[in-house]
Amino acid sequence: MAGIFDRMSGATGADTEGLAQASAPDGNLPDEPAALSVADERSTPKRVREAVQEMLKYGLLEESHKPNLYRSALSHAEEVANILEPLDLAMGVDEVRGLVFITVRQDDLAEQDEWSHPLVRRQRLSLEQSLLIAVLRQQFIAYEQESGTGASQALVAVDELIPQLQVYLGELGSEAKERNRVITLLDQLKGHGLVSALDAHDRVVIRPIITHLANPENLQALVVWLREQTKGAAAPEGEEDMA
């Protein structure tokens, strides 16, 4: 005769089996919870996350350096835009030069100053850095006019940049100091992804993103302003010579 405990355990087993069959019509339990499947469907693809993280870290993605992430950003442009939108950022695209890059999102309903954006303000450039960017941008545009848009080996030597900076910043009194000034500025711009590291011949490659870093009218205005300051500083000396 079955005891009371046998009858209770038998009933519990039958009830459990019945519940399992009721929850799974085919009698098989699901391999994973449905909630996890829904979460997986809603999550951002890994390659898109990696692409956005790379863009936020360096400000851009270059097809020549990160081809897989570059293609992921282009093919998932809407997802990238949705990630950047809460930060008031957007993705700029330059397929001719193989670039995708971070820009400050402009609101059509209100005028915004992109320089007031926290990420831009944190990376504000000095006067000397801005001047060198203007010089390098001119060099890069001239290179593209000669070699074609999309060419990516715009080389410039330290010795070529020294006299161009001297025109606006003056001379430091020794060749060693002049070279050190240019090399220091180039190293700072390398951190912004604008130039490569110096090679064995003291040359750098100007990166294509320089065409999108700043408004060319602003850079030209900077050069004009510096030229006027230089002329103003030289005028008293000229008057003394005439006297």
Results as ranks from 00 to 15, higher is better:
residue 67 P to K: 13
residue 13 G to D: 14
residue 47 R to A: 13
residue 170 G to Q: 12
residue 236 P to W: 07
residue 20 A to D: 13
residue 44 T to K: 03
residue 74 L to Q: 07
residue 221 A to Y: 09
residue 238 G to Q: 14
residue 193 G to P: 08
residue 183 I to W: 04
residue 237 E to I: 12
residue 18 G to W: 09
residue 109 L to D: 07
residue 194 L to S: 01
residue 88 D to W: 10
residue 51 A to S: 12
residue 166 Q to V: 15
residue 183 I to K: 13
residue 142 A to L: 10
residue 94 D to N: 04
residue 152 S to G: 07
residue 31 D to A: 15
residue 132 L to Y: 06
residue 56 L to C: 15
residue 103 T to L: 13
residue 122 R to Q: 12
residue 114 E to C: 00
residue 126 S to K: 05
residue 40 D to F: 14
residue 94 D to S: 06
residue 148 G to R: 03
residue 8 M to I: 10
residue 10 G to Q: 08
residue 135 V to E: 15
residue 179 R to P: 04
residue 78 E to C: 05
residue 11 A to C: 03
residue 58 Y to M: 11
residue 123 Q to Y: 02
residue 140 F to R: 10
residue 3 G to A: 09
residue 197 A to K: 15
residue 76 H to W: 01
residue 132 L to I: 01
residue 58 Y to L: 14
residue 145 Q to I: 02
residue 43 S to P: 02
residue 49 R to S: 01
residue 127 L to W: 04
residue 209 I to L: 14
residue 129 Q to I: 04
residue 25 P to S: 02
residue 201 H to Y: 04
residue 84 L to K: 08
residue 231 K to G: 08
residue 138 Q to M: 11
residue 169 L to F: 10
residue 121 R to V: 08
residue 2 A to V: 09
residue 198 L to R: 08
residue 162 I to E: 07
residue 200 A to I: 09
residue 181 R to F: 01
residue 139 Q to S: 08
residue 152 S to F: 04
residue 208 P to K: 10
residue 107 D to Q: 05
residue 100 V to N: 06
residue 233 A to S: 05
residue 184 T to A: 14
residue 151 A to K: 07
residue 184 T to K: 13
residue 54 E to D: 04
residue 37 S to M: 02
residue 19 L to I: 14
residue 181 R to N: 05
residue 207 R to Q: 14
residue 6 D to H: 00
residue 205 V to R: 05
residue 64 S to N: 08
residue 127 L to A: 04
residue 39 A to D: 04
residue 26 D to E: 07
residue 230 T to N: 01
residue 193 G to L: 00
residue 166 Q to G: 07
residue 230 T to F: 10
residue 74 L to Y: 04
residue 222 L to D: 05
residue 101 F to G: 04
residue 124 R to C: 00
residue 178 E to H: 06
residue 210 I to G: 11
residue 85 E to G: 01
residue 176 A to N: 07
residue 200 A to W: 01
residue 120 V to K: 06
residue 210 I to F: 09
residue 177 K to D: 15
residue 239 E to M: 11
residue 226 L to P: 02
residue 169 L to M: 15
residue 221 A to F: 00
residue 56 L to E: 00
residue 58 Y to F: 15
residue 193 G to W: 06
residue 170 G to A: 09
residue 186 L to F: 00
residue 76 H to M: 00
residue 205 V to T: 12
residue 2 A to W: 02
residue 7 R to S: 14
residue 181 R to C: 03
residue 210 I to Y: 06
residue 121 R to T: 02
residue 9 S to K: 03
residue 4 I to A: 13
residue 149 T to R: 14
residue 1 M to L: 11
residue 104 V to Q: 01
residue 38 V to Y: 01
residue 107 D to H: 09
residue 208 P to W: 04
residue 15 D to G: 00
residue 81 A to K: 14
residue 39 A to M: 11
residue 144 E to M: 12
residue 12 T to H: 14
residue 242 M to L: 11
residue 96 V to I: 12
residue 27 G to P: 07
residue 101 F to E: 06
residue 100 V to K: 01
residue 65 H to I: 09
